[in-house]
């Protein structure tokens, strides 16, 4: 879904750059207010975490595989603004180091995956947990919202290509949306399970969910991790 340079017309990538620069600037301001000087190390290490988490591949269909996008995962764990920053940083590094996504298209990529994917996905998640205010509800909401975020990001990506005149709208939108509706299922399962796991071992780390464990849990290193993770493979 990383659009390279040359695929978008000037009338598309310039507004996309402005929109995502504005969104990112606002997120930075909000996060800096909330976290103060903790922000830089925390956002940096969390960006590296999402980058590593994107290495998780899952088979889609017919031998192809999708990888985790992590937009909703980041937003559920860190909040919508910090989630958008983390995703943007991952996209910037992918653009600069791996040429995954072009420089002029970076604005559009940030818009699709950080602004729509993380922030939009978080909004959807927030509405869902208002409807189902329980532990299970959070897991289900994270899963559904992450499916939605992949689907929405792909649809908007297709729309941008269509507006640029690169692909015919009647074909590219249903094709991208359809393929990503399936890829989104993998994203939903993984995101739901990861959120469930964190909810079990360190619920205090989930954004806006300061319940159960209490204040003591967060200060003990490796606190709840021994409880729920036989597979973690620490030797």
């Amino acid at each position: 879904m990383h659009i390279p340079d040359g695929f978008l017309s000037t009338g598309t990538w310039v507004p996309a750059w402005l929109l995502s620069a504005g969104g990112l600037g606002y997120s930075l301001k909000k996060t800096a207010q909330a976290m103060k000087d903790r922000m830089i190390p925390l956002m940096g290490v969390m960006s590296a975490f999402i980058f590593a988490a994107q290495m998780v591949n899952f088979p889609v269909m017919g031998g192809t595989s999708g990888h985790l996008l992590g937009g909703v995962l980041a937003a559920v764990l860190l909040g919508p603004f910090a989630g958008a920053i983390v995703l943007s940083c991952v996209l910037i590094v992918q653009c600069l180091i791996f040429q995954d996504g072009g420089l002029t298209a970076l604005g559009a990529n940030i818009f699709n995956m950080a602004i729509i994917g993380a922030m939009g996905g978080y909004l959807f998640y927030k509405v869902l947990i208002l409807l189902m205010p329980s532990r299970k509800g959070i897991i289900v909401a994270a899963a559904v919202a992450s499916w939605f975020s992949v689907f929405a990001a792909a649809t908007i990506c297709a729309l941008e290509l269509a507006i640029s005149g690169t692909s015919p709208i009647a074909v590219v939108v249903p094709a991208m949306a359809g393929v990503h509706a399936i890829i989104g299922l993998g994203e939903a399962v993984i995101t739901g399970l990861v959120v469930g796991f964190v909810l079990k071992v360190r619920p205090d780390l989930i954004y806006g969910q300061a319940f159960s464990h209490g204040a003591g849990a967060s200060s003990s290193p490796c606190g709840g991790m021994l409880g729920g993770a036989p597979e973690e493979g620490k030797s």
Binding site: L42, V45, F49, V56, L193, F197, L205
Partner: peptide, 24 residues
């Protein structure tokens, strides 16, 4: 397999978060 993978990502998150805190 998927479940184990998701748990690994979860552990990775908790460890990364704790690492970020100690770095800070």
């Amino acid at each position: 397999d998927v479940k184990a993978l998701a748990n690994m990502v979860g552990v990775l998150f908790v460890r990364a978060y704790e690492r970020a805190e100690s770095v800070y």
